[in-house]
């Protein structure tokens, strides 16, 4: 059985076993190693990707369910040789990145939030981020970055 879906706008066909987690498919089959296997149990959020524009924990998402859907990963946000997206840029500008292992997931969660909510409040941002664990930053600078994007301070 093969599964056909879109990754970052490009169609792909995947021959993985049906209940393989999307994370494993992204990393091992498609070479997209941005999403991280932080816990493998759906509790850290480092593997967050967007499926039809909503954040999901890709380690808990069976590849079979991706059939005909649109998957977006951190690699698909900015062109590799192009400028950063406002969310990515703001995270650096505000010092929201330390070890960075959680950051691909954080970027996807914030991207989805800001696509729906133009000017999120800190409370809305924290609610959106509660499934993205960060052990380094204490979250403050990540929240500041998202607020700044909402205010249009980033491009």
């Amino acid at each position: 059985m093969t599964y056909s879906f879109h990754i970052n706008g490009h169609p792909v066909e995947i021959g993985s076993a049906a209940m393989t987690g999307l994370l494993e498919v992204l990393r091992d089959e498609l070479g997209l190693r941005g999403a991280k296997p932080g816990c493998g149990e759906g509790r850290c959020g480092a593997c967050t990707v967007l499926v039809d524009d909503v954040p999901v924990a890709s380690c808990l998402y069976p590849v079979a369910l991706a059939q005909s859907r649109h998957v977006r990963t951190v690699e698909g946000l900015a062109a590799p040789d192009g400028p950063l997206t406002p969310v990515q840029d703001a995270l650096l500008e505000h010092g929201g990145v330390q070890c960075g292992a959680c950051i691909p997931g954080v970027v996807m969660t914030l991207t989805a939030l800001l696509e729906r909510t133009l000017r999120p409040t800190p409370d809305q941002i924290c609610d959106a981020l509660v499934g993205n664990l960060c052990r380094c930053t204490g979250y403050h600078k990540i929240v500041e970055a998202a607020v700044a994007v909402g205010r249009g301070e980033e491009r």
Binding site: G42, V54, A57, Y61, L65, A128, G131
Partner: peptide, 9 residues
């Protein structure tokens, strides 16, 4: 319940 990544699916 849970958090967005779970609530979404």
């Amino acid at each position: 319940s849970a958090f967005p990544q779970v609530r979404n699916v």
